[in-house]
Design a protein around this nucleic acid. Structure first.
Lengths: 123, 123
DNA sequence: CGATGAACACCATGTTCATTA
DNA sequence: TAATGAACATGGTGTTCATCG
């Protein structure tokens, strides 16, 4: 029951968790589909030199589906072209909240590690 | 000459660079050998749940040798046992300084990304 | 061609094995 | 057994390919 297995050495937060966090927050505030979310992320983080890939966004979305946090529907886009896109919405608010709380802990921890490094090496 | 190739998508600082930074700083302040440096890092970061592996420390040290930043000598340990250890010292102070400056930029950038995430997702 | 997704490839790093003092 | 190092294995993520509307 308690056979602990190290899952990593615990350095910084992984990109996947970071993206999942943002996806949840964005989807909480409206309906979005994959490439839209990608563009949003890229726009936000371009100033910081971070440019996520489309496949990683999709993987994060699929993760969130498996986690039971999001649900997906297909709708036709309202533009001149009539193409189906996959739109997401929150399925389980509690799970979403729990996940965000988990990631926050890791964000805080990671921030502390970086801050310590700045203190220890540039004094 | 200017055929730029993306080396990564630019998420957070890599562990390797992080370790190399600490190794330089520690070695600037005295002579150390590998496992000693490992123990030191583990002690420092245990509170943050980060526990680097020995092989990664060695890889970082070898990198710094290749970079021409460190130099290595073999000496006998002063203890009851007479075993040779590999001790390191700074070979090129300028290069060391330059490297540390590079990593600082990445540390700052990474910190900003994390801070932004905290602001954007927990307001 | 835009959107989604899967397959494939690579690199950073973790785990295990070998050597020597 | 401590210390170093190399070999091997895996995970996370980037790149490419396939499909469908």
């Amino acid at each position: 029951m308690s056979s602990r297995k190290r899952e990593s050495t615990g350095f910084l937060l992984k990109q996947r968790a970071f993206l999942k966090l943002y996806l949840i927050t964005n989807i909480e505030n409206g309906r979005w589909y994959g490439l839209q979310l990608l563009d949003e992320m890229r726009k936000e983080f371009q100033p910081f030199g971070f440019e996520p890939q489309h496949s990683e966004i999709y993987r994060a979305l699929h993760d969130l589906l498996e986690d039971g946090i999001l649900t997906r529907g297909k709708i036709k886009k309202g533009d001149s072209k009539y193409q189906e896109v996959a739109v997401y919405s929150i399925k389980d608010k509690e799970k979403a909240k729990t996940y965000k709380k988990m990631v926050k802990a890791d964000l805080d921890r990671s921030s502390q590690i970086l801050r310590k490094a700045l203190e220890d090496n540039y004094s």
